[in-house]
């Protein structure tokens, strides 16, 4: 009975807030669907439920009643110091208007992520060109990548149940603590076939909301434990453990010229392409194998259906071998037994 009474007490301001928001949205934007009240309630439920639930501090006791929070905590193998109430805060975005949201934790997590990922990439591939390096960092920690981790690997759910339905089901408020809460972009318009692409203030995409929560969990792990070692291990286990094929990211505009500039800068002999093998020169489908040499050292080798194609491919191969140089057992600066390695001179500017 008490639970029902609580939910009724909580539900009154929910409905008031919902009606206010509906009224506001009718008067301010023409994109909101004005046809059914039910749909309007659906679009505003995330905000209203979140703001009500965040108007007070979530206690550990309340958070422990949420099965989703407890299971997420276990699934991520988080330490005891990482409280369930903190985890609930990580899932509450700033757009849901609560005081205790994940805004600060997201910044902390982002800074940890970008440092450890860039450090790892630079130690593993010291000669990586800046553009590729930035793309590789982005591949690990972009909104899309983190959203994929949050949704598919960690199994975070979005709070999508309409407030009216929650009220009718007499759903306890703790149920929503374990779900991702944010103000979603309302894509509905009055015009048939027209999709809304702009957002109102505070509205965010699910992808962004997911990435915010993933970064926040990393930030909260540090804040709870004050241990950089644990945070680093968590990042390595969950983010850097994903396979990324950097060799496919390269795209050279003038590979032969770039190789020539590279050799000049590094003081190597001028690169020369030599035909190593050929087959069917006078046929419809000839194959040429060309190697690029600097003095007696072979820099790269490849094949092509023409001499020019084979030469270009061989130059690309040589450049990739240079840029993708990987030291044996690379150590990052944050390792205890770190020894300084190669410091790259920078990319070749053609």
């Amino acid at each position: 009975m008490n639970r029902i009474r609580n939910s009724l007490v909580l539900s009154k301001p929910f409905i008031n807030q919902s009606s206010k928001l509906i009224h506001k949205s009718f008067s301010t934007t023409r994109f909101v669907n004005q046809t059914t009240t039910q749909e309007s309630l659906n679009t505003t439920q995330t905000t209203s439920s979140s703001s009500a639930s965040n108007s007070k501090i979530i206690t550990e006791e309340e958070a422990s009643k949420s099965a989703l929070l407890v299971s997420l905590h276990r699934r991520l193998n988080l330490p005891k110091e990482f409280k369930l109430s903190t985890l609930a805060r990580c899932l509450t975005c700033r757009s849901s208007q609560g005081k205790l949201n994940n805004y600060g934790l997201n910044i902390l997590g982002k800074n940890f992520l970008s440092y450890y990922v860039s450090e790892n990439l630079l130690a593993t591939y010291p000669r990586l060109p800046t553009i590729i390096l930035n793309s590789a960092i982005d591949s690990y920690i972009s909104n899309e990548s983190l959203a994929s981790i949050g949704e598919h690997s960690w199994g975070i759910e979005v709070d999508q149940t309409p407030i009216l339905q929650k009220f009718l089901r007499e759903e306890p408020i703790e149920y929503s603590y374990g779900k991702l809460r944010f103000l979603p972009v309302n894509p509905k318009t009055n015009e048939k076939g027209v999709t809304k692409i702009t957002k109102n203030a505070g509205e965010i995409d699910p992808t962004v909301a997911y990435s915010l929560s993933v970064r926040s969990i990393i930030g909260a792990l540090y804040a709870s434990t004050k241990s950089e070692t644990l945070t680093k291990k968590f990042i390595y286990d969950h983010i850097l453990s994903r396979k990324l094929d950097i060799s496919t990211m390269f795209e050279f505009e003038q590979p032969t010229r770039e190789l020539s500039r590279l050799c000049k800068r590094e003081g190597f002999e001028v690169p020369i392409a030599r035909l190593l093998a050929e087959n069917g020169r006078l046929t419809k489908k000839p194959v040429f194998v060309v190697g690029v040499f600097s003095g007696e050292n072979k820099l790269g080798e490849s094949y092509g259906s023409s001499l020019k194609e084979a030469k270009i491919r061989a130059s690309v191969d040589a450049l990739k071998k240079w840029y993708l140089y990987k030291p044996l057992n690379p150590k990052v600066p944050s390792d205890e037994d770190y020894q300084p390695g190669l410091i790259d001179h920078g990319i070749v500017i053609v």
């Binding site: 392409a273 035909l275 001499l307 020019k308």
Partner: peptide
Amino acid sequence: RPSSSIISQS
């Protein structure tokens, strides 16, 4: 140097 070299010496 083989006669088939594609790029001539700089």
